[in-house]
Design a protein around this nucleic acid. Structure first.
Ligand SMILES: [Mn+2]
Ligand SMILES: [Mn+2]
Ligand SMILES: [Zn+2]
Ligand SMILES: [Zn+2]
Lengths: 135, 135
DNA sequence: TATTTAGTTTATAATGGTTCTAAAGTAAAA
DNA sequence: TTTTACTTTAGAACCATTATAAACTAAATA
């Protein structure tokens, strides 16, 4: 992902390309594999990688803008912190509670043969499979 | 579930049968269908149902003791509050985000045909399927 | 039953992730 | 340039949850 794409990510999220936001966006989106993170872990990694400083509020605001624009998704993990995901396709997760790490499972790696029908007037929006790991 | 069973729930959770705990236990376990709740919702329902008063800390402590004893389970729901469940079997859920309501799906109502193998030296502990509903 | 001991309830404080605020700073528009 | 709108930041506020410790109660002991 080149610089123009980073600017597009920002613009399409309603964000001006400021120094902090460009660095956050590059850190999140200039990578090949999925990146799962919490705001705390992202903050630590950014501090290590760059010389800039980031107020926590800036990271929260930027990450939420990306999420609202569909450039990040949120993963439900047991615990206090919110986990984000650079993979915004429908997919599933392994979760290793030893290391608190998420591992992607592509949608087509799981096939569900039988599923109940949605109650009363409701429809199924999406199906999430979460596989807890042990040693 | 009769009084003796309620006492067993308490004793097996390491709890003496005090007035507050007996009322909480009866409220949670003397029912036919699954009950999903947060500490806040439980507190409100208890206040309506009984004349006793409950400190929030008592509800938290009692619910956690039941959970640690395996008499309640915790359900992962997007949001800030922790959801508990009187159904402690392996099962799945529908989630209606309109009403913030959980609906049980029995384990055998979902059949998974294909599942990836666990990474490196890990094993699968359990598989949770979460079906989000829409109108 | 009276006394002692261990556990419990409660109000309130502390904690921690997240969100809000408003002042100082910066990008874009005019 | 000058003006305007948006952004960053430190710190306060928020809120679910957990910790604290004093008053209370159940259970054990005598
Ligand atoms: Mn969570
Ligand atoms: Mn949750
Ligand atoms: Zn993922
Ligand atoms: Zn359930």
């Amino acid at each position: 992902m080149n610089k123009i794409d980073i600017f597009k990510k920002l613009r399409s999220s309603g964000l001006r390309p400021t120094k902090q936001r460009v660095e956050i966006a590059k850190f999140l989106f200039e990578r090949d594999k999925t990146f799962h993170f919490t705001v705390e872990s992202l903050d630590k990694l950014l501090s290590k990688k760059t010389t800039s400083k980031f107020a926590l509020a800036t990271i929260y605001n930027t990450v939420h803008a990306f999420k609202n624009a569909g450039h990040l998704s949120e993963v439900e993990v047991r615990g206090k912190k919110t986990y984000f995901d650079t993979n915004v396709t429908n997919h599933h997760h392994f979760y290793d509670s030893e290391t608190s790490e998420l591992i992607d499972i592509d949608e087509n790696e799981i096939i569900i043969q039988k599923i109940p029908k949605a109650p009363n007037g409701k429809k199924i929006k999406n199906v999430e499979v979460f596989i807890n790991l042990k040693n």
